[in-house]
Amino acid sequence: MTTAAPVAPERVDRPAGDERGERDRPWDVIVWNDPVTLMSYVVFVLRKLFGHDEPTAVKLMMRVHREGRAVVASGPREKSEMDVARLHAHGLQATLARD
């Protein structure tokens, strides 16, 4: 399966000339594929937690499925950590990391 349209913005890009320090680099929230969880469940959780519309959530889910992982949100560490905890509360495999 392929998706032609670009996926909605996945990360907060730093504006040009931004000189914020190391501390402010955003943390990515990454969802990992697993062979058990239903695709429809992943779509449901992404819609519920991040307020995505269905096509956006399906695209993210398919990216997880095909590529093994997808960045579903990005932001300050506390917020990203909270997002990961909410994904964990729903039984999804999620981590946070930054480049």
């Binding site: 964990h88 039984g91 981590t95 946070l96 990391a97």
Partner: peptide, 28 residues
């Protein structure tokens, strides 16, 4: 698998587990 790690880094993971580990189990 039920309670997967949030971080690769063991120290950050231990902090995370300490912070939310119990409530994740209790809620489920």
């Amino acid at each position: 698998r039920l309670f997967p790690p949030a971080y690769d880094d063991p120290e950050a993971e231990a902090e995370y587990r300490n912070l939310v580990g119990d409530s994740l189990v209790e809620e489920r």
